[in-house]
Amino acid sequence: MRLIINGETQIVAATTLSQLLTALEYEGEWLATAVNGELIHREERDDHALADNDRIEILTPMQGG
């Protein structure tokens, strides 16, 4: 499947958001995810099926003013 992850196009085998995070070795309670501009809550990731050309955002905390 072709996905745009944090702005970069990648080909992945994952079919759900949870599988994608695992495949890319994202882990931790500090992640926030969105698909096509909509927040996907932590507890929704297992059931969230991905589709070709989905835009995935994966954000984590950083320093800020």
Partner: peptide
């Protein structure tokens, strides 16, 4: 104040800061 950023695979930098 804190912020969010796109994390490269692994997400460990953000985790350490968190």
């Amino acid at each position: 104040t804190v912020s969010l950023r796109r994390e490269t695979a692994g997400g460990r930098n953000g985790g350490a800061f968190f």
